[in-house]
């Protein structure tokens, strides 16, 4: 289980959180198939540092972005 550093509540156990997937995926403004495919489905899924959204659902309820290394599962500071 991860120990997640919530910027508002401090380190809390993972079961209080919901993972909301990759951060920085921007909703397209134009009606373009390629852009919408990328928005809806394509992900970087890196073996390395991953920027991801978390929500402290059973805590403060806020969304925030963290960077985690996907091999060590350790949270790191933003690159």
């Amino acid at each position: 289980m991860l120990l997640i550093p919530c910027p508002h509540c401090g380190d809390r156990p993972e079961i209080e959180f919901r993972n909301c997937g990759e951060a920085g995926i921007v909703r397209p403004t134009a009606a373009d198939d390629a852009a919408w495919t990328a928005f809806l489905y394509l992900r970087s899924n890196p073996r390395g540092l991953h920027a991801e959204r978390w929500r402290h659902v059973h805590g403060c309820g806020r969304f925030f972005t963290l960077h985690r290394h996907t091999v060590s599962d350790r949270f790191e500071s933003a690159p």
């Binding site: 495919t37 990328a38 992900r43 899924n45 890196p46």
Partner: peptide
């Protein structure tokens, strides 16, 4: 599970999460 990593070598983003 490593398909995204290999496909990235050809510049492709995949609809996959591991």
């Amino acid at each position: 599970g490593h398909t995204s990593v290999v496909m990235a070598m050809a510049g492709l983003r995949m609809p996959l999460e591991s």
